[in-house]
């Protein structure tokens, strides 16, 4: 009987596809896989690629996403070592590391695993926060802050608590630190009071600084002028000293010197708007006296 080769090839392809569907499976880059035989663990596959298996129900394939997953829990109050109630939220990055353990503990139920992780996270958070005062979380002194240390302690604790979960806690961080609702009101009141104090402080500082600067300015002015007056006196003194050196010249004839000085003094004193009452005998006005008396005598 003659067979068409195309038909044969098509048939073979169809058979191959069905066989592949029954006997092969692929593991994606983002997955780890557990193969069970009649319900018992057979093998783990962590490398991506194409693998073979016996068809269901002999073998079954359980897939787990091995990428880092995010887990967070919101709005839980806890108490610090110094009795302060705070709201602190923490997030986790975790992934399936040992799929066999994970399967035995949680089956294929990822939600169950997350619930258990949440419980452990809450415990680790409460234990760690309870062993630190609030000043370790927030402080104006960076040296006294223990922020990174607290996160590291929580991470250590939850890693220890989930060691048999078949998961790896890759990272942990605090995502919120807050206060209970009722306390926020009190914080606002304190902030307002603090602001009022600052207003008064700034007003006082402004006045004080202004007065201080003005006083210093006045003092500086007096100092500058006093120094200038002193220097002026010094300059004049030096000038007097230089002038005194000329006195030796006048010592050659003190009479002439005194006469010349008197003349200068006389000229200076009668320089402006002077009224002069003279005796006619004063030379050279004595000439006038002779001129006046001569005609009288003749009369």
């Amino acid at each position: 009987m003659k067979r068409n080769p195309v038909t044969l090839a098509t048939g073979a392809l169809v058979v191959l596809i069905f066989a592949a569907m029954l006997f092969a499976f692929q593991v994606r880059q983002t997955e780890v896989v557990i193969v069970t035989t009649l319900g018992r663990y057979a093998r783990s596959i962590e490398a991506p690629g194409l693998y073979f298996r016996w068809p269901w129900p002999i073998q079954n394939v359980h897939r787990f996403d091995n990428r880092i997953r995010n887990l967070e829990k919101k709005y839980e109050q806890t108490t610090t070592a110094d009795g302060r109630i705070i709201v602190i939220d923490v997030f986790l990055g975790w992934r399936v590391k040992e799929p066999r353990k994970f399967l035995e503990l949680f089956g294929d139920n990822l939600a169950a695993a997350e619930r258990n992780l949440e419980i452990q996270l809450r415990t680790a958070k409460n234990n760690t926060v309870g062993s630190h005062p609030l000043a370790d979380f927030i402080s104006v002194d960076p040296q006294s802050l223990r922020f990174d240390q607290i996160e590291a302690e929580m991470l250590r604790e939850i890693r220890a608590a989930t060691a048999n979960f078949g998961v790896e806690i890759v990272l942990l961080g605090i995502k919120q630190i807050g206060l209970p609702e009722s306390i926020t009101t009190k914080v606002f009141d304190r902030m307002k009071a603090e602001r009022e104090r600052l207003v008064k402080q700034f007003q006082g500082e402004g006045e004080r600084e202004s007065i201080r600067i003005r006083s210093e300015a006045d003092l500086q002015r007096e100092r500058i002028l006093a120094e200038a007056e002193g220097k002026a006196r010094q300059i004049l003194g030096e000038a007097e000293a230089r002038a005194a050196a000329q006195l030796k010249t006048f010592e050659q004839n003190p009479e002439l010197a005194v006469f010349l000085l008197k003349l200068d003094a006389l000229e200076q004193s009668l320089k402006e708007r002077a009224t002069l009452v003279l005796d006619p005998r004063t030379p050279p006005f004595d000439l006038l006296q002779n001129a006046v008396t001569a005609p009288g005598r003749s009369n």
Binding site: L198, G206, I213, A217
Partner: peptide, 24 residues
Amino acid sequence: EVNAAEQERSRKISDALGYQDQIT
């Protein structure tokens, strides 16, 4: 209000410094 008070403080100090510069 604190910012305003701070500004006012700066203004007063600035005025005083101006007076200091002027008188000096």
